[in-house]
Design a protein around this nucleic acid. Structure first.
Length: 919
RNA sequence: GGGCGGCUAGCUCAGUUGGUUAGAGCGUCACAUUGACAUUGUGAAGGUCAGAGGUUCGAAUCCUCUGCCGCCCACCA
């Protein structure tokens, strides 16, 4: 009953119950959505790390995606938002290792692989519940019945199948090369997991020994015991005489055999223009070495210590060795120069360890290797034929270039292509224990690791566990490495849609037997922060186009990162984080969501402050009170409740016109991913037009018996539709108010009757309002004048410049009916006070009359603009008519002149029409 | 070194194909308010749209250059 609606909206009272009711209703599940839904809309939740807690990045993802999803659902689409969590191999492993060290002073090797993995899994399971609870708090309408995990049995099978397929296609290979070794995490990492840190380093210029003719510069003297060459630029005259020669030198007790080679990679202007080449410990040097067939000598091991090949430096850490090597050089008088230089130190994203390039045998995905493309029969990529030879790089570029995958905002296309251009083969094996194990087995008895029986030379790659060597029936052991976590994430859009009950070793057959996949793939939108465009977005495109011949999603929507008031990234260590969980507790999920969506545009970072959230809490309360007024101020006659809107007064015409316009704009904005604009349009209408103006007018209109019913009908009409429009932005408060919209009015005598349901019980499955053609420009113009007049009157009255009985005029067009006079009149009275501070009871005579004065201003403006245009048209006409000019000007110039001219002509005609309408 | 973005009111930001007098929220100030809401209402002040040049009848918007801030990529050893 209206009188029972509390004065202020307290989100904490309602949110949990509403969410529980939604969840119970089955409406999150597309299979149990009401009505016939032909089109689908699907989106996967970027799986939060299972060990994490909800931060503002997640909150932004949830707010925006829930907005997309609820909009789609309200528009009658078969809508799936699929949740899940990410095992985040390295991140989780590192975290648990840290805890283990802290709590028990042990490392993972102390407790062994099996025990360690168990521990990680226990930890993951516990924190999984936390993050999932927090996702619910945000109001996310995800289908929990389909929840997936990147490291569960189904996803593991998918990973193994794709691995095998890639191996069979020659895309996955095992190679021995210089990789990024993280000595702290004790694993290799991919190029994308490196973070560069600005540091200063000592650049030392020296020669290996007294007899060596070419000085070189380095910041890492200790690695020079592994040098096998000195490279110079081919055009460098200083060293031309030495190129091709080999010199013997002894450095720190190591006998070096240094060949001088010429290579384009060397910058002759840097340092001495000569580079000591260390093939084993520098990627660039390894490439030089490959070009010149130079030998490689490893002098650093996986613990970051010098190997026994490092002569006097053997056994030292790299830092100690660096000091010792420098001392050695000084002692031998070989140093020519020492200077500080700025340097970008490579560190591991997760462990922070300084990356040590080491030559190792690892698994890679070859991005430049051609393979026979296998097209999808379900949703084929346009333009790549079945069997066509393509590379992964080409496929990744192709789907974006042809617009089959659209990136919003568009400018990230460039970032994406730039990344692909520089992409090297992707190192997918990791030496950590937590993660999808590389599905490769080696024969213990006769495999390449232990013998050289011909039949066993190949690794045994299999999607299903291998128990014995197919060749010799001997025992096998699985590759100890695990896969990069992004390998499994890359399959996410389709691996989450696989039917877990199907047993098959053929991925395509599996997909064919998975109804969810058939219905919901490719997904409609992938929404995430731009910071993981390479890690995730690009990898999904790579994996999905390759593995199933489909695009993973049609649109990529990249939101900006949420920063604090000083523009810093939110982080725990800085202590500057606004905790969304706190915000929800304090201001409600709706306010938190609004603060994250309004005032932020895709791809641009946003700053968030608590004040902003508080501001939107005020708005949720405003909407609540608007509803409270509408429900309580009227008798709620059934006749009004079920009535269509009726424009009896100017104010009615105006508000219905404005609403029709707003409804249309909001729908368009949402369709175009302009969420902030959609929300702002709605807020301005709701607060500014509807609450501040129409509600005030409604108070007056309802006193007029001939207007009471239609006014109520209009209020209810707009309010109920506003709730639908607002629902994707703030689902909780709108859902709560919705209950009142459809509650029956109190029966005569005071007892409330049976709830007379009209429309669906849940707002979340109400119908998105149909577009209506009710825009009434005349009413909008007239009402604007009334508003202006009212404001003028108030100001004049406030300044006591108008006597209480003075007449103030406002001109309206002929559609004005008698009611308008009283409306304007009453509003002026309500807001005016005389100079003594007393409410002025004496009525200001506000009369609506019809002098044609106020068109003057606008006419003058239009005339001015028109004059300018006319002058232009005349001048251009002359120019274009001038054959001499045209013959001199290039064709394009003349064409663009003509186009502009035509445009100006159209514009001129429009203006003339407008002007004539005013006269 | 290469690329991308930003610079609009005190603060945070909109500004959608170039077009009336450049907008919103917060903040500030003034006024109002017993009846939907003080989590309120009305109004005001506050902007040479970073700078310079160009295209145009007309530029915050398009082009060129410059400055400052930020991000991404590369990694000169």
């Amino acid at each position: 009953m209206p009188s029972e609606i509390p004065k202020a909206y307290e989100p904490q009272k309602y949110e949990d119950d509403i969410y529980a009711a939604w969840e119970q209703s089955g409406l999150f599940n597309p299979d149990t959505l009401p009505g016939e839904r032909k089109e689908y809309f699907s989106i996967v939740l970027p799986p939060p790390n299972v060990t994490g807690t909800l931060h503002l990045g997640h909150a932004a993802i949830l707010a925006i995606e829930d907005l997309m999803v609820r909009f789609a659902r309200l528009r009658g689409k078969k809508t799936l938002w699929l949740p899940g969590t990410d095992h985040a191999a390295i991140a989780t492993s590192t975290k648990v290792e840290g805890l283990l060290q802290k709590e028990e002073g042990k490392n993972r090797h102390d407790i062994g692989r099996e025990a360690f993995v168990k521990r990680v899994e226990a930890f993951a399971a516990a924190s999984h519940d936390t993050i999932v609870r927090q996702v619910r708090k945000m109001g996310a309408s995800v289908d929990w019945s389909r929840e997936a995990y990147t490291f569960d049995a189904v996803r593991n099978r998918a990973v193994n199948l794709v691995f095998k397929q890639m191996y069979d296609d020659g895309l996955i290979y095992r190679g021995f090369r210089v990789v990024n070794w993280d000595p702290i995490g004790q694993t290799v990492i991919s190029d994308d997991e490196i973070i560069y840190k600005e540091t200063t380093a000592m650049l030392v210029t020296f020669t290996y020994d007294q007899d060596f003719p070419i000085p070189i510069s380095t910041t890492r003297p200790e690695t020079k015991v592994g040098d096998t060459a000195v490279a110079v630029h081919p055009d460098d005259a200083r060293y031309a005489a030495y190129v091709g020669k080999t010199f013997e030198a002894t450095f720190c007790g190591v006998k070096l055999s240094i060949k001088v080679v010429a290579d384009e990679a060397v910058d002759p202007a840097f340092g001495t223009g000569a580079v000591g080449v260390t093939p084993a410990h520098s990627l660039i040097d390894a490439e030089i070495a490959q070009r010149h067939e130079l030998p490689s000598r490893q002098v650093i091991d996986t613990d970051g210590r010098m190997t026994s090949d490092a002569g006097e430096l053997a056994g030292l850490t790299t830092l100690d060795a660096r000091a010792k090597a420098t001392d050695w050089l000084r002692a031998h008088g070989l140093i020519q120069k020492k200077e500080d230089v700025a340097q970008n130190l490579s560190t591991a994203q997760r462990s922070g360890g300084a990356i040590e390039p080491l030559p190792m045998r690892q698994w890679f995905i070859g991005v430049n290797r051609p393979f026979a493309f296998k097209a999808s029969t379900h949703a084929p990529i346009k333009g790549i034929k079945d069997g066509q030879q393509v590379t992964l790089k080409e496929a990744m570029q192709y789907v974006v270039r042809t617009g089959q995958v659209k990136i919003v905002p568009e400018r990230f296309d460039k970032t994406y292509f730039h990344w692909i251009d520089h992409l090297r083969d992707w190192n997918i094996s990791r030496q950590i224990w937590f993660g999808h194990r590389v599905p490769v087995w080696y024969c213990k008895a006769c495999g390449p690791e232990h013998g050289n029986v011909e039949a066993c030379r190949q690794s045994i790659v299999s999607a299903v566990p291998v128990v014995e060597c197919p060749a010799c029936k001997g025992p096998v052991e699985q590759d100890p490495d695990t896969l990069d976590t992004w390998f499994s994430s890359g399959l996410w859009t389709f691996s989450t849609l696989l039917n877990k009950d199907v047993q098959t070793d053929d991925l395509r057959a599996w997909l064919a037997q998975s109804p969810d996949f058939q219905t919901f793939h490719p997904t409609s939108v992938l929404e995430t922060g731009y910071d993981i465009i390479f890690f995730w977005v690009a990898r999904m495109i790579l994996m999905t186009t390759y593995a199933i011949g489909e695009i993973p999603f049609e649109t990529v929507y990249l939101h900006g990162l949420v920063r604090d008031e000083q523009g810093r990234k939110m982080s725990k260590s800085l202590g500057n984080g606004i905790d969304p969980v706190d915000m929800i507790a304090k201001y409600g999920a709706d306010a938190t969501r609004l603060a994250l969506v309004l005032g932020s545009t895709p791809g641009n970072d946003m700053k968030l402050s608590e004040e902003k959230v508080a501001g939107f809490r005020n708005f949720t309360n405003k909407l609540w009170n608007i509803s409270r007024f509408v429900f309580s101020a009227f008798s709620r006659q059934p006749s009004a409740v079920s009535k269509e809107p009726e424009a009896k007064t100017l104010a009615d015409r105006w508000i219905l016109s404005r609403f029709a316009r707003v409804q249309d704009q909001v729908t368009k904005h949402l369709e175009q991913f302009e969420y902030s604009s959609a929300g702002e349009t709605l807020r301005d209408f709701t607060w500014g037009d509807f609450a501040d103006w129409y509600l005030e007018i409604a108070k007056i209109q309802k006193q007029n018996p001939t207007l009471a019913v239609s006014t109520e009908a209009n209020l209810l009409f707009i309010l109920s539709r506003l709730l639908v429009l607002w629902h994707p932005f703030m689902p909780f408060v709108t859902e709560e108010i919705w209950k009142h919209v459809h509650a029956s009015p109190p029966a005569k005598g005071g007892t409330s009757g049976e709830a007379g349901q009209r429309g669906p019980r849940f707002l979340m499955v109400a119908a998105w309002p149909e577009a209506v053609n009710r825009v009434d420009e005349e009413a909008e113009r007239d009402f604007a004048k009334v508003q202006e007049a009212i404001v003028d009157i108030r100001n004049l009255r406030a300044a006591n410049k108008v006597a209480p009985t003075e007449t103030v005029g406002v001109k309206l067009t002929d559609a004005v009916v008698a009611e308008q006079a009283s409306i304007v009149h009453a509003l002026a009275r309500a807001r005016a006070k005389d100079a003594t501070g007393q409410n002025s009871v004496a009525t200001a005579n506000v009369v609506v009359y019809l002098p044609a004065v106020d068109a003057g201003k606008e006419r003058a403006r239009l005339a001015k603009e028109l004059d300018a245009l006319r002058a232009y048209v005349t001048a251009t006409q002359a120019k274009l008519a001038n054959a001499e000019f045209v013959s001199k000007a290039p064709v394009q110039v003349v064409d663009s002149m003509r186009a502009k001219f035509a445009e100006a002509q159209v514009k001129r005609q429009e203006l003339e029409k407008q002007l004539n309408a005013l006269v």
